[in-house]
Design a protein around this nucleic acid. Structure first.
Lengths: 365, 365
DNA sequence: GACATTAATCGAAGCGCTTCGATTTAGTGC
DNA sequence: GCACTAAATCGAAGCGCTTCGATTAATGTC
């Protein structure tokens, strides 16, 4: 193994000079830099990561904790992880992969043993058990998702409340007066996942503001559940002219179920999804959607961490504004129908609105 | 930060004794072990990972290189990665996540800097550019997938050739005489991905042995491509009574396209998939399938690596035998039809067989 | 031209751990 | 009871790097 003393000897300088060439922490003459760089290349020198970590108390490694739970769309996690790795590399860091399996012990272990300099935690719950541990860590962390209490933490996520609002407002703008939100599986709400609750809060609040009848419906991530829910919706709420779908796993089955039931999209039913853009774009029928910016969240969480490692102050909360792209699945109410039916529908909707929207701000739990 | 000298002082022993208690590399009296363990717990001591790596030349970290290419089913990668992390933890190791983006430089970097002790590489191509680098590494590695030349390497994967055979034999056993294999997107074959080629080789070889007309059809991972392919197949090969699908992304669309075209599954068309078990099980129509054992491949690749790190000899090639589970998508030919049509079909098939199977062992490239 | 600055480099200490003799004590065989 | 082995523990060296004064040389200042 080539070590720093070998490089130093080869370049005719002291080891500390080599170190300073590498770190740039002291000024070194251009000529010396050139010679040292040449020696490094010629000898194929790579600083020993452990030695470096020991001497500098920086490992240049970040921990990424990924979720293993049900009801989470795997490709999004993957996109996110890839973005974290890519960005970390740009900042000369590597990424250690942890699963939730070990619980908080895993994070504590890699942090306390100085294996990692900082931690990114995904899938944060409203009342996440890991928060006390994260607060007590002597290393910075960034949370993807917002817990109920964010004090002393750095959090980032899509602004799901605004996303819920944006979906509803897009539909309200098209004249829809009765809109359903089809969300995550019940367990996601039950365990208190912030994004699910916030989306529905935003959706319902906007519904109330716009005088639209808004209702929220959790949905299991199976084809059968999707079909059953559609049957129920069509039976119980025939006045619905639009739905917002916030559940990647059953996006296609839901749309198909509506179509199979004779609802043409968008003529009879408008659909807005909250999902990764590529999913919406490449669906059979391109769907109007609010993008889940996995790449951006990943990138920015690393950038936040880097800033914290540099001792900079960072905003405690970063809410990325939703971006809604209108595609082929949404249309103005009544586009393909006679006026009377529409009016009737809108009336029914308006009557129902107040009750529904006021009744609760989140789905039953 | 608590260090080993603190623990030693607290327990009234020397630092080396604490180290030996932790590593078990020398015998320590039960009483001393007890005292040291108690001190460790009481002080919350965690050995410094960098110091340990420096002194022992073992980082207890494995590198996992995941693919970013198109045409690969993301959930399978994830399953695999989770299994690697879980197994690594059982062996007291952590996992560093690398993407293919950095190319071989990334692997070389983490290996040469002693950041990791060993490397797992996924998605190996037949003529993978990374092979020379892996061979020249002074650290063990395990490849998921088989390159053309496996000398000096350790490889593991599902035995895709046997999987292709198993699918065909299952169908041949049910009396099918004309079977199509719908495979990965063309680019996967073109870049020389072993598993795609091997599956079709096994499939075609078994077809020839059993006197079945076997044909192979790459398929892009889009719903439109799936539908187009089905249209083409139905037009050009009306004699087909069964298909093997080895392409997770379009599994459901393909089945649906066949059904939409009036082919009942399994009465008119038997379908066997090569895909993760949960996908086959939870499809709308549970599909007969050969499982892709992501969990097992991940686990065993780590175990192979651990053995190599312990200086043990390991088998250079591990081919996991395919496991075919018959579900609702396959049936005996002619189950729901009159005999004549079936006979005619079988005749056509037999005539075509020799030509097709002999023509080529792999799809055009 | 003596003195203070700045730039460039060196030497040595030390990061926290493992490991290799060396040492001590306790057993074992005859 | 003497030599010998085994068990338990210690002390010190050293893993490869960074970093902090210290040193030297070059530059400016009045």
């Amino acid at each position: 193994m080539v070590k720093i003393t070998d490089v130093a000897r080869h370049a005719g300088v002291s080891p500390s000079t080599v170190s300073y060439v590498l770190s740039g922490k002291r000024s070194i003459s251009a000529e010396t830099v050139r010679r040292v760089r040449a020696s490094i290349r010629e000898l194929g020198y790579r600083p020993h990561a452990g030695a470096r970590a020991l001497a500098s108390s920086r490992s240049n490694v970040l921990a990424l904790v990924i979720p293993l739970r049900t009801g989470i769309h795997v490709p999004v996690i993957m996109q996110f992880a890839v973005s974290v790795v890519t960005t970390a590399r740009r900042h000369d860091h590597d990424v250690l992969l942890l699963t939730q399996e070990e619980g908080e012990e895993g994070v504590r272990r890699v942090a306390d043993s100085a294996l990692v300099d900082a931690v990114i935690v995904m899938d944060v719950q409203l009342h996440d058990e890991r928060l006390p541990m994260l607060r007590s860590l002597d290393r910075p962390s960034v949370l993807i998702g917002f817990p109920a209490e964010t004090e002393d933490l750095t959090c980032i996520d899509l602004d799901f409340r605004a996303a819920g609002e944006a979906c509803l407002e897009h539909l309200a703008g098209l004249g829809h007066r009765a809109v359903g939100l089809i969300g995550s599986p019940p367990e996601v709400y039950e365990r208190g996942t912030g994004y699910a609750q916030r989306t529905s809060e935003g959706f319902l609040a906007a519904a109330e503001r716009h005088g639209v009848a808004g209702t929220v419906h959790p949905c299991e991530a199976t084809v059968e559940a999707a079909r059953a829910l559609v049957d129920r919706l069509l039976a119980e709420q025939p006045e619905l002219t639009a739905v917002v779908i916030h559940n990647e796993s059953v996006l296609a089955p839901l749309v198909k179920a509506f179509q199979d039931a004779g609802r043409r999209v968008p003529e009879d039913l408008s659909v807005v999804a909250i999902c990764p853009d590529d999913l919406a774009e490449h669906a059979e029928l391109p769907l109007s959607s609010v993008a889940i910016p996995a790449e951006e969240v990943g990138r920015r969480s690393v950038e936040l961490l880097m800033a914290k490692l540099d001792g900079e102050e960072v905003p405690p909360a970063t809410l990325l504004p939703p971006r809604l792209t209108a595609r082929a699945s949404t249309a103005r109410v009544g586009t393909a129908h006679a006026g009377t039916a529409d009016t009737a529908r809108a009336d029914t909707a308006r009557a129902g609105t107040a009750g529904t929207a006021r009744a609760g701000t989140a789905p039953a739990n």
